[in-house]
Design a protein around this nucleic acid. Structure first.
Lengths: 119, 119
DNA sequence: TTTACATCCTTGTGTTGCAAGGTACTAAAT
DNA sequence: ATTTAGTACCTTGCAACACAAGGATGTAAA
């Protein structure tokens, strides 16, 4: 019932496509738990919220791409630290390729020469 | 009930994020109707199907980003040729920015230095 | 014992890409 | 004339999923 901000919508849409990739990337850099993952992503302007991240981490774990271990927190309840599995690392390599292909595709389409257009 | 092909899934996911952007880009290059848009995108390895494109073109038209005109086809029923409106061109400029920002973000996250990681 | 905070998690909603199926028009073949 | 083939339009129903909102539980300080 709400007329959306078209652009903000599309930034969100674009981000969605790379969310899983982004999460695997930060976990490759080093293990993390929910808040730290959110912080790292925010540091590069990729906005994720808890309600998105929890289900996704669980999904990735169920797919065998991640494992976790419990660790005491200096404050509050213990944390679930997630790590890439070998399968996760493999998946990440494939996503790397997918990302590079996508960048190449978009670059290509940004520079279609007129005479190659049909119809 | 079906175990998905993880990678193909993710290529699809990534593509989704840039679909609207891609469509505006090809229409900036020159007006087109459904089939010609699909062909142009396929030429750069971005796969879209009819069932996706029709609703999307209608949505973009309703948002005022596109207009169309009818034109006789050499064979079969007339075609709906879509063109960017001024508002569509404006939106495209903003999507261009969003895309470049995303590429920059992902690039940044691919190269997080260890010592910047927390927790 | 109450407040503050950090951590975990679930539920409900809205969007949307896609598979599948449907209608209609033209032209060629039977 | 009818059927077939090809091209174009469009809709319906399903499944995935990001996010907002809300909830439970643990520690520590006031």
């Amino acid at each position: 019932m709400e007329q959306n901000n078209l652009v903000e919508n599309n930034r969100t849409q674009m981000r969605r496509g790379v969310l899983e990739y982004s999460i695997l990337l930060v976990l490759k850099a080093g293990e993390g738990y929910t808040s730290s993952i959110i912080s790292r992503l925010k540091a590069v302007d990729i906005i994720v919220v808890e309600g998105t991240l929890y289900p996704m981490l669980i999904r990735l774990k169920n797919q065998g791409l991640l494992t976790y271990r419990w660790e005491e927190s200096p404050q509050g309840p213990p944390r679930k630290y997630y790590t890439l599995t070998e399968k996760g690392a493999q998946q990440l390599r494939e996503l790397d390729q997918a990302w590079m292909d996508l960048v190449r595709s978009v670059e290509a389409i940004r520079t279609i020469p007129e005479h190659l257009l049909i119809g």
